[in-house]
Each structure stands twice: as structure tokens, then as C-alpha cells.
């Protein structure tokens, strides 16, 4: 029945969108707030997926927990990458061409290293809930409404965890000193100096947080679908489409845009076939850039 199909496509889209928010939030911080065009972000996400895979396959650790375990390492990685970026490009005023090429190089280095280590086979993780739906998982298949009982756990867990992570980030940005300093770094360098904060340090922390989110996003990704090294490239269009559509650095906008793209892709996949889904993000990106470059939450 088309109506059922529509409803389930919408629900799947919203779940997908929640996950996309986690994938994009790092870009929203790096590109939207710090103005660092980190096109290698999806590659870091895939790296996160493989770490979740290793911890899961070797030690049987739950992928979400694996993501949390990887957080500090990714934070340090992010801080290191920013330091190189700052010294080599930002300080010299060469971020445009050289900086972009740098991240492009990182993208390929990460991807190829993963290929050399793990090959191009699809890898996946195992956890009790992954192949269940909500009803079976809770043992409430009969008492819950059909639509809710049939929510797939492999989509629901990443979505819920994503939104949780998103909420934590939002609180950090809005309520803490560091968070306010991060917002100030993009808008008002003078205010930042008055706060007595070193802009480079603030940017390093912010970029480190942005890469840390990739550890979580990577874990969520490998719960949703099997992963191979080049999967990341599909996400490049998506994350930037969401970031731009959300209004560059507006976290609330990112969440809304992520859900919008999730729904749009889900509807496209349902009614035109999944092989067309990657084109949706690109179309959305181009339309946004052409007609409303400030995004839906644009200032």
C-alpha cells in the first residue's frame, strides 16, 4: 500500500537523518564555525568505523562503547592535524589552495591505508540488538503499535545515540566557557581577546572535538551498514550539503537539515531505487548554493 510505504519511508528517513546529524556535526564545527574545509572528515569517520570493527571483532566490545573508547584518541588526532594545518597553512595565509590539497591528501592517505590493511571487503559489527526490531528487542512485539514495534534497532540505536551526542555538544557550546569561546572565534575575535582566550588554542580544541565526533559517527555508521574504505566518499556530498543547508555552523540548523536530507533520500530510495540516493544530496547542495547559500537557518 503506497500510504504505508510513504509512512515507513518517512520514519526511516527521520532515523537516517538523526544519524546524518552525527556525521555532519564535525563538519559544522570545522567548516561552519572554524572555516576549515576539512574534506577528509568522512575518511576519519570511516577510520572510526574500522576501530569499532576491530574492538568489536577482537574483544566483543559493543560498537557504541567502542566509539566512546576511541574518543580521546580521535581528540588527540584532531588536535595534531589542526596544529599541522595551522603552522603550515593558516599562519602563512595559504589555506585556500594548499590547505584544501592537504586535506585532500589526508583523505586519500587514510583511505588507502585502510585498503592496504583491511582490503576492500565489507566489514560489519555484531551486537545483540543489531538484527532486531524494537518490538522484539523489548519483547513487546504484540503490545506496541506495529509501526513502532517494527522500528529496526540498527537504525534506532545510532539515531538515538546521535541525538544524545548532539545534545551534549549543544550544551557544551551554549553553556561552557570553551563553547562560547568557540562561537566567538568565528564571529568576534575582539570579544575573544577580551575573554583572555588564545584563538589558536580555542580553534585547536574545537577542531579536536570535531574529529572526536567522527569516532562516534564511524561507530554508528558500521552499526547501520557494512563498511569498506571508499564508503566515506559517498558522505562527502552529504555532510557538506547538510552543513550548507543548515546554515553553516548553526547546530540546530544542522539537525533540521540532516533530517530533511534523510527523509529526501529515504523517499528517493523507496520510490526511485536506492542507486539514485547519492544524487539527492548533490542536488540539494547545488540548489542550496545556487538559491540560498546562507542556508535555512542563515543569518
Amino acid at each position: 500500500m503506497p500510504f504505508d510505504l510513504l509512512v515507513s519511508a518517512l520514519v526511516a528517513g527521520v532515523l537516517l537523518g538523526g544519524f546524518y546529524a552525527a556525521v555532519t556535526v564535525g563538519i559544522s564545527i570545522a567548516f561552519g564555525i572554524l572555516d576549515i574545509v576539512n574534506i577528509a572528515h568522512p575518511a576519519f569517520i570511516i577510520l572510526g568505523s574500522y576501530i569499532a570493527y576491530i574492538l568489536n571483532a577482537q574483544f566483543g566490545i559493543d560498537p557504541v562503547i567502542a566509539g566512546i573508547i576511541a574518543l580521546p584518541a580521535f581528540y588527540v588526532l584532531g588536535a595534531a592535524v589542526y596544529q599541522v594545518y595551522y603552522v603550515s597553512f593558516e599562519k602563512r595565509g595559504k589555506e585556500a589552495l594548499s590547505g584544501l590539497a592537504f586535506f585532500f591528501g589526508l583523505l586519500f592517505i587514510t583511505e588507502v591505508l585502510l585498503i592496504l590493511q583491511f582490503g576492500v571487503d565489507y566489514r560489519y559489527v555484531q551486537a545483540g540488538y543489531i538484527d532486531n526490531n524494537l518490538g522484539k528487542f523489548l519483547g513487546l512485539s504484540q503490545s506496541l503499535p506495529k509501526l513502532i514495534a517494527e522500528l529496526p534497532m540498527r537504525m534506532l540505536v545510532p539515531c538515538v545515540m546521535s541525538i544524545l551526542m548532539f545534545g551534549v555538544l549543544l550544551i557544551v557550546i551554549k553553556r561552557t566557557f570553551i563553547g562560547r569561546a568557540i562561537m566567538a572565534v568565528s564571529q568576534d575575535a575582539l570579544a575573544l581577546q577580551l575573554m583572555g582566550a588564545d584563538p589558536v588554542r580555542i580553534k585547536r580544541i574545537a577542531f579536536a572535538i570535531s574529529i572526536a565526533t567522527a569516532a562516534m559517527a564511524g561507530a554508528f555508521l558500521i552499526i547501520i551498514q557494512p563498511v569498506e574504505p571508499s564508503v566515506g566518499r559517498e558522505y562527502i556530498g552529504r555532510v557538506f550539503a547538510i552543513c550548507v543547508l543548515g546554515g553553516m555552523g548553526s547546530l540546530t540548523g544542522t539537525l533540521i537539515a540532516a533530517v530533511l536530507l534523510g527523509v529526501a533520500e529515504s523517499l528517493t530510495a523507496t520510490f526511485y531505487g536506492p542507486s539514485w540516493a547519492p544524487a539527492v544530496s548533490f542536488g540539494l547542495l547545488l540548489l542550496t548554493l545556487a538559491f540560498r547559500p546562507s542556508g535555512i537557518m542563515g543569518r
Partner: peptide, 8 residues
């Protein structure tokens, strides 16, 4: 970014 997405 648009060129990157276009390739996909």
C-alpha cells in the same frame, strides 16, 4: 565541495 559531490 560541489566538484567533489559532483563526482559521486
Amino acid at each position: 565541495i560541489a566538484t567533489l559531490a559532483m563526482a559521486v
